[in-house]
Design a protein around this nucleic acid. Structure first.
Lengths: 224, 224
DNA sequence: TCTAAATTGATACGATCGGATTAATTATGG
DNA sequence: CCATAATTAATCCGATCGTATCAATTTAGA
């Protein structure tokens, strides 16, 4: 008799798949390892999922579902926010999600390195629609003076998500090299502030506050 | 008789290894595929390298050698440059290298997703020394007013390199989703300008130029 | 040119992979 | 309580993996 409190086999397989695919990618993961981690016999995979491929797709769909919930959790209140506050709100939730579930970014990275049927599926069903909306939102925010409008929206978008996710993708390296755990709550909040400070345009007040500082930085040539 | 013009077997193996490991990572690459791509029998790998592991390390060392040359090619002239110009110079070469040899970033990403002997070797021999220097340079540039000093140097560093490399890591996805080839020379230069515009502090002149714009962006709350 | 070393090619082995099959077990409803 | 369906466990198969071995071939020095 099941207690109902413990996860059923299907859910255990899904969780284990998320963890394994997130660490080792599709090629580096074996269904036997997933079954081991889930504590079930590897034959059960064939029953609950058609195979490795479907298990991978289920893991991706599951993570995107979590992402959607995370980013839109304050959506009802967006109408009461300024454009800048909306960007800060969704970026904050996105960064927190990236810290809590780095597997999604990692799975995408693994698959985006080369062409494959999985990349095609991933792009058509998730990346293209998601990225299209995100770039459009970035472009709007540029018009609204939240982001620097002197940079193509596509470049800004990819710089934006990279800035957000990279430090969590590199977590094992940072832990090993500097003994810093970027998943600590303090580190996560520090990173949120860092990303927003660097990529959002300063407000008018902030510009005035720092104008003295920048006078020290005189006479240097511009970028272009 | 060799003509001397064609690559020898060892070099052909190395090039093929760079390409394969860069696309599929260590786990996703088979030595047979490397030998096929190199046009040699897969038994030769055992002669020129002790095995898959050493071939992977050789590929990493080769790429880091190229990176070093690329970033330091103008080092002799750095003494004639302002701090800002030095940052722009090295960042520009780094971005161009990331576009020309995305394999290095990709190999690092593949390995940095989980602990392994390879990650340990990679971290000790390359990542830690390289990153330590890079973070120190970022901290110095912050003091010199090139970067926003209101952000921890470590976060700024990881945001910096992420902004630089991500768009090239995602190249197959961007090509598939938006039919844009980020390896086009124009795209590369656009990306260099974008990264520098977003992450470098504006010079004093640039601040004055844009001060009218920012008056439109009034009354919105700050980040923190 | 002849011989020894260097290099390459062909083949084999044990391990592990994903997938398929079938038996054993558990849950469900009459 | 029993029969049926749902689920899990055990086993097998062909393919491919990394590696090792050894013969064939090419290169280089005396």
């Amino acid at each position: 008799m099941e207690t109902g409190l413990e996860l059923d086999t299907r859910s255990k397989l899904l969780k284990a798949a998320v963890a394994q695919f997130g660490k080792f990618g599709f090629a580096g993961t074996s269904v036997r390892k997933i079954a081991d981690e889930a504590g079930v016999n590897h034959g059960s995979i064939k029953y609950h999922y058609s195979g490795k491929d479907e298990l991978w797709r289920a893991a991706v769909a599951y993570l995107y579902g979590l992402l959607d919930k995370a980013v839109h959790q304050d959506e009802a209140e967006w109408k009461n926010m300024t454009p800048r506050q909306q960007i800060i709100n969704s970026a904050t939730h996105y960064i927190r999600f990236s810290a809590r579930h780095p597997e999604l970014s990692r799975i995408i990275f693994f698959e985006t390195m080369h062409e494959s049927d999985r990349l095609e599926w991933l792009t058509e069903n998730y990346i293209r629609p998601y990225t299209s909306r995100a770039i459009a939102r970035v472009a709007l925010a540029q018009e609204q003076g939240v982001y620097n409008s002197d940079v193509p929206a596509m470049n800004l978008h990819y710089i934006n998500i990279a800035a957000t996710k990279n430090i969590f993708l590199m977590a094992p390296e940072i832990k090993r090299a500097f003994d810093i755990d970027v998943f600590d709550d303090d580190q996560i909040e520090t990173h949120i502030e860092s990303v927003l400070k660097l990529l959002l345009l300063p407000t008018a007040e902030q510009t005035e506050e720092t104008s003295q500082k920048e006078e020290n930085n005189a006479g240097l040539p511009g970028v272009s």
